[in-house]
Amino acid sequence: MDTLAPAPAPATAPARTLQPMLRLIDIEKVYQTKTIETVALNRVNLTIGKGEFVSIMGPSGCGKSTLLSLIGLLDEPTSGTIELNGRAVRSYSDKEVAALRNSKIGFVFQSYHLINDLSVLDNVELPLLYRPGVSGKERRQRALDALDKVGLSARTAHFPGQLSGGQRQRVAIARALVGQPELILADEPTGNLDSVMGEEIMDLLLELNRRDGVTIVMVTHDEQQALKTERLVRFFDGSQVS
């Protein structure tokens, strides 16, 4: 099992020293319900370097989303250690973990998870709301910039219900990048989109990675997409198989 060898960096990318950003060591995740016990992840070891674009593939139910929620500090492993920039996540308090999520990580979900009651602009501003010292004016400006990046400057006053799936996912990406995180986690970001729209989203993510050096971990079912990324990790039944 080769977990550390990265694909060669594309020629356009800036020269990188592949510092590990995130390390998963012997991760196990067991879901305990009243009747059954599900082992969602079984002794997973994975290192993600700064600036990498990693795709994760595997059949449904093999633990991909679980893995992403652990990487995203949304959940804690049953056993094993997660290290972020060399420090064990376990040693942070709840408040610090929330602050880490806010400053370091951006999420993109398959079903967008936009807040329907809020306008596009307010949705994109959301992560900055939880960041101390960002004024309302600055929030607005940064959200507009992020929307500009995903090509949705003309839709700021719309509500999510008034947008197409592809547009919604672009809003979600704007929201994920507005806080300038080091890491974007995307769980089947094109899963609900047709291939043309999926292509657009994929190009957007690739550009983010190449131009801005954002580390991206993406779960996908699309072999074509996975091949465009630097590194592909396959899962089967809770374990990493390649």
Partner: peptide, 16 residues
């Protein structure tokens, strides 16, 4: 609940 999840994912604390 989706909204709550999103807010937490983007760094909202319980007291927020």
């Amino acid at each position: 609940s989706g909204e709550i999840g999103v807010r937490k994912a983007f760094g909202a604390t319980g007291s927020n």
